[in-house]
């Protein structure tokens, strides 16, 4: 009797999730379909795109990528973007790491005020300060420079990075730090030799989120860089689609090259991404 009942329950549950799987699959097609289409279309020729806009290519044309790389000047813009990403990530990890350590462990007078300040500052609408910031940057001759953008990106990412690193550091045991101090380590040594090796997953999460954010960033880049020599991939690609907007095989190939590194990183480390992006709450 019991066995029969359980069998019945089991069957009922399976029916239930079948419904769920069907609709989830439809949603997956909706979410991934356009991305797959982008990848597939980047191998087609323009004539084939017209005849066969949604199917697999009859002829896989790898030379699209070479052409897009040349025409879109991806060599220079990839280099620029890598500089922006590495500069921002290292500056943010160092400065926000120091601040997070201080807030998590030292609890100096005014620590709560600092936290409140960061919380409020991270919700101030960006358009309140973007225009004056532009004219300030022009006065300082920071427009069209690497450090100009890196400083802005670091500051914009600071509240999120400090919050996430701080909550990560609070979770670490204090005893190891105390042991190091007993052995005569100073504050910086404690931070570098004890905290960083223990907290690297937190630093990796923050670094990934900040790095992807900078790689994808458009709004600040389009306002603060006008010299094509300094364009990151995003704004350079925007200008590129302006010129070659009707050449779909070229623009698709370019877009695919731009997202390929992001997609590979995401698939390899997706737990960290999801955790970092959803805990931060805000993608700027």
């Amino acid at each position: 009797m019991i066995a029969r009942r359980e069998f019945f329950l089991f069957r009922k549950q399976r029916e239930n999730t079948a419904f769920n799987h069907i609709f989830l699959s439809i949603l997956v097609v909706f979410s991934l379909g356009p991305v797959v289409l982008l990848a597939v279309n980047s191998f087609k020729s323009n004539t084939e795109m017209g005849l066969n806009p949604l199917g697999l290519p009859q002829e896989w044309r790898f030379e699209n990528f070479g052409r897009a790389w040349e025409q879109g000047e991806f060599e220079r813009t990839f280099k620029n973007s890598v500089i922006y990403v590495i500069g921002t990530v290292s500056l943010a990890l160092i400065l926000c790491g120091l601040a997070a350590y201080s807030l998590a462990r030292k609890n100096p007078p005014g620590a709560n005020f600092v936290m409140l300040y960061l919380l409020v500052a991270s919700t101030v609408p960006v358009w309140l300060y973007l225009v004056p910031l532009f004219f300030l940057w022009r006065q300082l001759e920071f427009l069209n420079t690497y450090h100009g953008l890196i400083l802005i990106y670091t500051a914009f990412n600071a509240p999120f990075s400090i919050f996430l690193l701080r909550s990560f550091l609070i979770g670490l045991p204090v005893e190891l730090e105390d042991a190091a101090r007993v052995d005569g380590a100073n504050e910086l040594q404690v931070l570098l030799k004890v905290i960083v090796p223990l907290a690297w997953p937190g630093f990796l999460t923050v670094g990934l989120v900040v790095g992807i954010g900078v790689w994808s960033e458009f709004q600040v880049a389009v306002i603060f860089t006008h010299n094509p020599e300094m364009f990151p991939v995003t704004t350079s690609y925007f200008k590129f689609t302006d010129r070659f907007g009707r050449d779909w095989s070229l623009t698709n190939a370019g877009a695919f090259m731009m997202v390929a590194p992001v997609l590979i990183l995401f698939l390899a480390l997706q737990r960290r991404f999801v955790e970092g992006l959803t805990q931060g709450g805000v993608k700027f």
Binding site: L24, L27, V28, S31, L32, P34, V35, L37, L38, I212, W215, S216, E217, F218, T234, Y237, F238, T241, T251, N252, A255, M258, V259, V262, L263, F266, L267, Q270, F273, V274, L277, K283
Partner: peptide
């Protein structure tokens, strides 16, 4: 993973798609 993925795409790529 599949449903979250579009969120990490750069806006310029989403726009192109």
């Amino acid at each position: 993973t599949a449903l979250f993925m579009p969120f990490i795409l750069p806006s310029i790529v989403t726009a192109t798609i």
